[in-house]
Design a protein around this nucleic acid. Sequence first.
RNA 1: GCCCGAGUGGCGGAACAGGUAGACGCACAGGACUUAAAAUCCUGCGAGAUUUAAACCUCGUGCCGGUUCAAGUCCGGCCUCGGGCACCA
Length: 938
Amino acid sequence: MENITKIEQKWRDRWEKEKIYKFDPNSKKEKLYCLEMFSYPSGAKLHMGHWYNYGVTDSWARLKRMQGYNVFHPMGFDAFGLPAENYAIKTGIHPADSTKNNVETMEKQLRNIGATYDWDYEVNTSLPEYYKWTQWLFLKFYEKGLAYKKEAPVNWCPSCNTVLANEQVVNGECERCHSVIVRKKMNQWFFKITEYADELLTDLDKLDWPERTKILQRNWIGKSEGAYIDFKVDNSEETFRVFTTRADTLYGATYCVLAPEHELVDKITTKEQKALVEKYKIEAAKQSEIDRTSTVKEKTGVFTGAYAINPINNKRIPIWIADYVLVSYGTGAIMAVPAHDERDYDFAKKFNIDIIPVVQKVTGTIREDEKEKRSIVAVVYNPKTNKYLTLNWGDLGGRLFIGGTIKENESPIDCALREIKEETGYTNLKYLHSSFPVNHHYYAYNKNQAYNIICDLIYFELVDETKEEQNLDADEKFKVEWTSEDIILKEVKDELHQTAFEFRVEKPFIGDGIHVNSDKINGLNKEDAINKMIEVLKEIKAGEKAINYKLRDWLISRQRYWGAPIPMIYCDTCGIVPVPEKELPVILPYDAVFTPDGESPLKKSMDFVNCKCPKCDKDAKRECDTLDTFVCSSWYYLRYPDARNEKEAFNPEIINKILPVDKYVGGIEHACMHLLYARFFTKALRDMGYLKFDEPFTSLVHQGIILGADGEKMSKSRGNTVAPDPIIEEYGADILRNYLMFGFNYVDGGPWTDNGIVAINKFYNKVERLVKSYKNDDIEIHDLDKALHKTIKEVTEDSDNFQFNTALARIMEYTNALVKYEKDGIPKYYLEQLLLILAPFAPHITEELWCEVLKNEFSIHNQTYPTYDESKIKDTTFEIGVQVNGKLRGSIQITEDMKEEEIQNMALNESNVQKHLENKEIIKVIVVPKRIVSIVVK
RNA sequence: GCCCGAGUGGCGGAACAGGUAGACGCACAGGACUUAAAAUCCUGCGAGAUUUAAACCUCGUGCCGGUUCAAGUCCGGCCUCGGGCACCA
């Protein structure tokens, strides 16, 4: 379109002037709250990602608007945060000033999208009229016991000079600047999000959210069911509690471990061990988060000198400290069962602690009248050839290792050596290790007898080829073969022998099996054993069922300037005193010195710090930390509908009408932060009586990411960024918006191409040409009705699912159908319908053609979206395929009212099908109505 | 290591609920219009064999196998890429 930018501006001005997107809270229409995640006003301009998020979602909102919903579609700015502050440190420009500027530019750019935002509801989290209520909410949370201050080990970013929430630490690094996080013990403010862990988890089921996002949150919350078990410290009054998911293995606990930071450590450490323990504690504290949680690291730990009493059997077991036990999870203490836990196994191996197996693997099938036996399976490895000694029994039993029954008074190892010698002749072997016995059930056909055997798995290395003569029974017909690993994995089919091969590497047994060495729970499987054990522990008052979550409380204080001050006061007499509500907001002082030195910048602002205690009126000091910006964004969607309210954060009556958000669109990167925090806020405020809904965002969509043309993420350093502005200047906002809708699967995103833009431009030129070809002719073309109604149906459905690429494809088809009649002239109705269908997608272009070319009344956006008539879509004839033996051999035209028999005959008589039926016997004919005929022949 | 998701023409991507794979578009090729070009319109466009041509045939949705009359779609086992979690007891 000529002069596209001018035309677009013209219509935007007109929309603005006539306030056609003004939200009417009292409308009788059904409400629909459509929201995109608001943006951070950085210095840079709107980028492609913003357009993808905002432009495309706006089309959805427009469609809903035309369909008669009372759409609430606000926009605002998440304006507090580190980048503005860091920018200030670099340039000296105050965050308040740079933010103000950025908001102005961004707002202008956002307006150029031509979206339906009602700017009267705009919010800016950095303005006192907003953060007053953020502070108020903090006070409410404090009142309810959901905000508390605690000395705790926290994540410290040495570069940003502030603490971070767990969610902001990615792989042990700061998510923003990628510095390695260090652990520090600090007195910090937390929100008790863990109180809602269970509800946050279960309510996910109610949400229309992408499944993978729910999974991310589920994993992050990390529910695990198990038990608490209490251990007494020997010769002491002290006890400690451990958390375990494997209470069934309690008989196999051979030591306990406390986290180095565990409060009991100092109390129970013996004199002899004191020095070692102290040294270890200091080293553990020094480690970065990355070192500490590295899984490849070798286990370390120190014995405290103290012993615990296992409550189930009163056994005395040593208490160690080790950094593989985390103070922040469970109780900060564990019972270690090396036979059935990999970490405990590594640790026990290294420090030579007992390993007692209490769960036995079961293989084979249990039968009646089993005879009991002890036996072995021996695996011999030849390190020179990297092969294993096997017996190939051929049809008699496939490939196996060496097996045999233990004779009376014979040790398992002797048995293995004897069997190897007898069956293969090899005698010079080095014993490596034995694995836990396996309980194997099998049936010997030659003896007509079922067996229940306890089998030791024993591993040897071949020293040299020294051999004696084999000593075989008559029925032992096998070939002795040295075999490589891949052949063994393929050919050894026997479960017992497979197990033998698996445990050639020494490792614990993690799986299910029957319990042994476990007195009260012997013979039970894992699930039953856990339940029984918890029952027993409860009886003897030494434990109970327990649930643990990985989710930690949300650390919300930051030692930075550009955020909402935490409204708390410290008084020497009264302690921590909340700022009275009527004194809110606690204004963030403009004249702060914000050199980042690890101290809260506000501490240097004496006018800010010094105040009077609201309780006793003595001199007091203000809290100088500010709130994590995620606190501000946890409730902005509640502020929007009542954004100018000066008396309250929101009017419950108003927001309970407009919320929850019906469609929320934004990036998946917020899955475990913003989206989780906002859910927590909603639930907390509901419990305080303000909200009448449980979840803030009923339906959620994540847009994908638009990559550079090279398929990499757009970045200045790569030089592959594509700026929206030049594209808008050349083609206009509608074209860009439509390319973004058409060129990608919305959820996937993908690499940018210029070709796509040109294609969309061509399409709209075609639309323009068609509409302009209208000559007020009185022509009737009934042919188009079907195409039109089909299009309306599919566009409506696809758009509802955010499948704009296919929606536009259908509109293109309709347009191509119109082109066929271009020469003869197209009735106005069909052109109008085209524009109406397109209106949400290309708001400017369609308005221009609607008003200026077709001379219709302003505005197209106040029209009703076309609806379809099912009867006009209905096909009466179908072309369906005919398959012979699963291969397509022809197609036939059928009508709706044809009987199955008729269709069948038609299919059988199709000429090409006939060829394939020649000399064949028809076995079966399957007719799937309106789809396919499938003929099976022999 | 564990948990997700993805893999379809030269390219972006379609395919309801297992039912004619490749919609729509880009690129490309041929043609029409034009003095010419652009624009526009028409035609073709997964690979391969055969044929004057059409028809037709074989193969084809990362790989191997299975279920089914029928598999991109369901099941089992892999491979590659992307994402998340990671000593969570």
